[in-house]
């Protein structure tokens, strides 16, 4: 990278935005593809249950199923609760 590039990159670089967005969505979709078919529905159901008690947006929950070995699969549930003070 030259000196010139350093100054040039101050401008909004839409290609790098595109790359970041793609990396996130592609990783997300690959994970979903590799999981079982019921995973998206499971995710929605869990979200609904939690929403009965706490109001959280849909993107604050992540469900993943990981095959650790032949006999062990781990269902991981990650819920980010909103800030209580607000």
């Amino acid at each position: 990278m030259s000196l010139l590039d350093y100054f040039r990159s101050k401008k909004t670089n839409t290609a790098s935005t595109a790359k970041e967005r793609l990396q996130i969505i592609v990783a997300h979709e690959r994970k979903r593809r590799s999981g079982p078919d019921y995973l998206p529905q499971l995710e929605r159901d869990i979200l609904e249950v939690i929403r009965k008690y706490v109001d959280i947006p849909a993107d604050q929950i992540a469900v993943s199923l990981e095959q650790r070995s032949d006999e062990l699969s781990v269902l991981e549930l990650n819920v980010t609760f909103p800030d209580e003070k607000r």
């Binding site: 040039r8 990159s9 839409t14 290609a15 790098s16 595109a18 790359k19 990396q23």
Partner: peptide, 15 residues
């Protein structure tokens, strides 16, 4: 690509 307006070959390959 040089202007940062288009994904580069490397970007697409990496993704």
């Amino acid at each position: 690509v040089q202007k940062g307006e288009m994904l580069s070959v490397e970007d697409v390959k990496e993704i």
